[in-house]
Amino acid sequence: MTIAAVQSNPTPAILPGSGGLRGALSDLFWRRPKFLLTLMLLPPLLWLGIVYIGSLFALLAQSFFSIDEFSGLINREFTLKTYSDLLQAANLDIILRTVTMAALVTLASAVIAFPIAYYAARYARGRWKALFYLGVMLPLWSSYLVKIYAWKLILAKEGILTWLLAKLNLLWLLDAWLSLPIVGGNSLSVSFTGTFIVFVYVWLPFMILPVQAALERVPGNLVEASSDLGASPGQTFRNVLFPLALPGIVAGSIFTFSLTLGDYIIPQIIGTSRLFIGQAVYSQQGTAGNIPLAAAFTVVPIVIMGFYLWGAKRMGAFDAL
């Protein structure tokens, strides 16, 4: 009886193909996973390969062209002349200034980021943790120009910072600082100090997140063991916390360093008339029309970041991302 019941209602072990083009395609995908893989990878690779890598190579190729000084036309023959132009004292000055700024900004971001990241990683729980997270995430994603604009409001001569210092009777301090040779200027919004503050402000969240990620992985009892064994808080920081957080700091510094190297809007809006690499690239390709020199200038941050990334990788920074 059971046999008859089963036979009268047979369930085939293999379903019939659904047929048609759709079925054929579906079968093809299953039998040849490589074909499906190729099909999936082709559109993004074509897009990034042609649009991005293609333009990048076109740019690099142009750095080996030169500009005719009399006609202003671009001479499409291989030459290293543009690179020797790049090594003029004025241009080296720009490079040195930008790299110094990037290094200082990175250092300051790390110092300000550490307490926030450490508190969020070790002490904040539940609701506070979410609050800290959003507290870093919202400024990170807020409009870049609005952030710069906000600082233009703050640093303006008639702005809130001067007002605050006047209330605290500390205006003499501001004046003393502004009368210093390199970092000073007529007002904060046209000085390197202003540029520096805005750079730190805008890139700070990029430093906090990786440092926090690295600190999350440090078990709290390591810190306690260190103090149980008689280390002062300073010693614990130097010998336990800092080495463990270092990959996170290096990972964050990739962002702060690279972003400062390439930025041309912040120093243009808040800063002196002395150029940074980004501004040099912008003016060379725009008003000067010297695309080869602009292209050669872009090679500088690419090379610096290449070395930086290589070093960061050796320090294990990518595991902290």
Binding site: I53, G54, S55, L59, Y264, Y282, M305
Partner: peptide, 24 residues
């Protein structure tokens, strides 16, 4: 390599992406 390729446009400074596209 593919992961790197995807991340590159945002890892390199924006001015490089911008000027590369413009010259292309």
């Amino acid at each position: 390599t593919i992961s790197l390729l995807v991340i590159l446009p945002i890892a390199l400074p924006g001015i490089i992406t911008g000027i590369a596209l413009r010259s292309a």
